[in-house]
Write a protein that binds this DNA or RNA. Structure first.
Length: 471
RNA sequence: GCGGCCGUAGCUCAACUGGUUAGAGCACUCGCCUGUCACGCGAGAGGUUGCCGGUUCAAGUCCGGUCGGCCGCGCCA
């Protein structure tokens, strides 16, 4: 017999059907037993009438047993209808129950919101937490966002390309997660902090319009809106200017809200643009919360922050002139604004050079950032010179980029969204863990898998790795 | 790396100023129940108070340490 989803039962009144799912609640009345059955589509009440052949099995079931239930869909008696509930006007008259798996009592109740449950216990039993309706909504709506973005970008001639997970340690940026190489003892892969270099090289490779739902890893300490492993919605386009990337992304975000979150309203369209200087002066940070009403859970206030300085001094003042070294504020691969290119090439007024960088901010959270890139080898080389790298180091670390740029790389630019953070805000969650199926703790552990963990002596020996205690 | 908060039954919590045998609701087990919908009623079982040490006649409670979790700072192109 073909399975019917619980959400479709109302279309089958009077029919005999088979549903499959979990026993959500059992209410044993003695001679008759009521159930709430649950599958991914919802809940329905089942009733085992007195004298039913199913009564014996019904008595032996418990919450969270996995069952196949054969039954007849009936209209409920008038006085037993519940207008506020899914399937509140129908019920399933249970004719037979097939127990597909039993369940011991759960460590905690997953029917009510699990936000109040000890976080450690929730994370250890994440597979149970995911049964909770709030978590189900979060991961399903996350999928809806990704689905919409994939469809929209494909319609606009983007292709999704996967880039390597085993890659090279980047001398700049966050701390890398590193992976020892067996074939080359003493050498290490690094996990990508972002697909930045690969996506630019895809532009060199003639892909022109790329995107990827990309896993990124940064070995830094966590926050409520930060995980060591997270997902970027990454894209890059050739032959575009700053306004093209911003317009495309603005439209994409508007589509997500209007199509998937119709109850929410966007405060201002087109999204306001604030310069870094104004944001710092007016809000004291570069991710301003521009909401008119911070208590409205359905208000989404997007804004762009632009015109960041390309370089800033490090806070170390160990130089003879008392000033720190130059470092970049966002991304060394960014291109200055067109009118600032001359200063970069001539290394003049370095602190005044403005980058093409644009950050997209939502309700005080940075949900994405990008720029037009330096596609000319000389310009990129100059950036690294300003950053204090000598020629050999530039060649060793970024030679592949410079070579590509000397071999016909088109002008290009792009952006990357922090997908988890965006979904967190759309789902009105206070923590990024709530929208990630299997998140890590603030200390970067997976409590369910118990990772990271020891590896065997044999594995270490094969890798030529020795463990030394860290003091 | 630093700071703050937290840790009592499977879960959520209580336990006065340090004082008798650490309690309750839910879950669990058993019994009863023909329209319940977080069903109800009755009974029962369930504890190394995270761990180690100290103070005290006496520690869930006070002190030190440690482990774990949460929040924030540093960090995060």
């Amino acid at each position: 017999m073909q399975r019917t989803y619980i959400a479709d039962l109302a279309k089958n009144v009077g029919q005999e059907v088979l549903i499959q799912g979990w026993i959500h609640v059992r209410r044993d009345q003695g001679k008759m037993v009521f159930f709430d059955f649950r599958d991914m589509s919802g809940l329905v009440q089942g009733v085992v009438l007195p004298g039913s052949e199913a009564i014996e099995t019904a008595k032996n079931t418990r919450e969270e047993f996995v069952v196949g239930v054969r039954g007849r869909v009936n209209e409920r008696p008038e006085r037993n209808r519940q207008a506020d509930k899914q399937n509140g006007s129908i019920e399933l008259e249970v004719l037979g129950i097939d127990i597909l798996n039993t369940s011991e009592p759960l460590p905690y109740n997953v029917h009510d919101d699990t936000l109040g449950i000890n976080e450690e216990i929730r994370l250890k039993h994440r597979f149970l937490d995911l049964r909770n309706s709030r978590l189900q909504k979060n991961i399903r709506n996350r999928d809806a966002v990704i689905h919409l973005v994939r469809n929209t970008l494909h319609d606009q001639h983007f292709i999704e390309v996967e880039t390597p997970i085993l890659t090279k340690s980047t001398p700049e940026g966050a701390r890398d997660f590193i992976v020892p190489s067996r074939k080359w003892p003493g050498s290490f892969f690094a996990l990508p902090q972002s697909p930045q270099q690969y996506k630019q090289l895809l532009m060199s490779g003639g892909v022109e319009r790329y995107f990827q739902v990309a896993k990124c890893m940064r070995d830094e300490d966590g926050r409520g809106d930060r995980q060591p492993e997270f997902t970027q919605l990454d894209m890059e386009m050739s032959f575009v200017e700053r306004g093209d990337v911003m317009a495309l992304n603005e439209q994409l975000l508007i589509s997500i809200v209007t199509e998937l979150y119709p109850e929410k309203k966007i405060q201002e369209i087109p999204f306001p643009r604030i310069s870094y200087k104004d944001a710092m002066a007016k809000y004291g940070n570069d991710r301003p919360d521009v909401r008119n009403d911070k208590n409205d859970p359905n208000l989404l206030a997007f804004c762009w922050v632009v015109d960041f300085p390309f370089f800033e001094r490090t806070d170390k003042s160990d130089n003879p002139d008392g000033k720190g070294e130059w470092t970049y504020t966002h991304n060394p691969f960014s291109r200055p604004l067109p009118e600032h290119m001359a200063n970069l090439i001539e290394k003049k007024n370095i602190g005044d050079i403005i980058t093409s960088q644009y950050d997209i901010v939502l309700n005080g959270f940075e949900i994405g950032g990008g720029s037009i890139r330096n596609h000319e080898a000389d310009a990129l080389h100059t950036v690294f010179q300003i950053l204090g790298h000598d020629g050999d180091k530039i060649e060793k670390d970024f030679g592949h980029m410079l070579t590509a740029f000397k071999l016909g790389t088109p002008p290009h630019g792009g952006i990357a969204w922090g997908l988890d953070r965006l979904v967190m805000l759309l789902q009105n969650e206070a923590n990024i863990r709530e929208v990630i199926a299997f998140p890590k703790t603030g200390e970067g552990k997976d409590l369910m898998m118990n990772a990271p963990s020891d590896v065997s002596e044999a594995q270490l020996k094969e890798l030529g790795v020795q463990i030394q205690p860290i003091k």
